[in-house]
């Protein structure tokens, strides 16, 4: 699990790579908490999230609550599935771009 950071004028682009599961949410939270205070706008790139479980989802919900200006971008299929299951896309309010191999369910 890694978190890649690109910063431009207080705009932070954070990319989460790998799993967001109970096994590594603690670690991820500790890394993300630093960005919360420093960034004007926090953009989280979810394109490389391979797996997300309830703990990972909860981490995103927490980010949404904490960050004044949170943007989730490039949702991976795993994230989209969970958002769809729980009908959370509207809550996060970020546009979700569907990939070409989107399967209709």
């Amino acid at each position: 699990m890694t978190i890649n950071v690109i910063e431009t004028d207080g705009f932070l682009n954070v990319a989460v790579v790998g799993e967001m599961t109970i096994y590594n949410v603690s670690e991820q939270k500790n890394k993300l908490i630093d960005f919360l205070s420093s960034a004007i706008e926090l953009q989280v790139d979810l394109s490389a999230v391979t797996e997300i479980d309830s703990a990972g989802l909860q981490l995103l919900l927490w980010l949404k609550q904490e960050a004044s200006n949170l943007k989730l971008v490039n949702h991976s299929q795993a994230v989209v599935n969970v958002f769809q299951l729980l009908n959370l896309a509207m809550y996060f309010g970020d546009p979700i771009v569907l990939s070409s191999h989107w399967k209709t369910s």
Partner: peptide, 25 residues
Amino acid sequence: QIREIQTLTPDLPPSLEFDPETCYL
């Protein structure tokens, strides 16, 4: 068929107290 689902986290604590391994869902 799940017709409608609401996800609630009424007890989700602020910043520092949040323990990502505790369930608030």
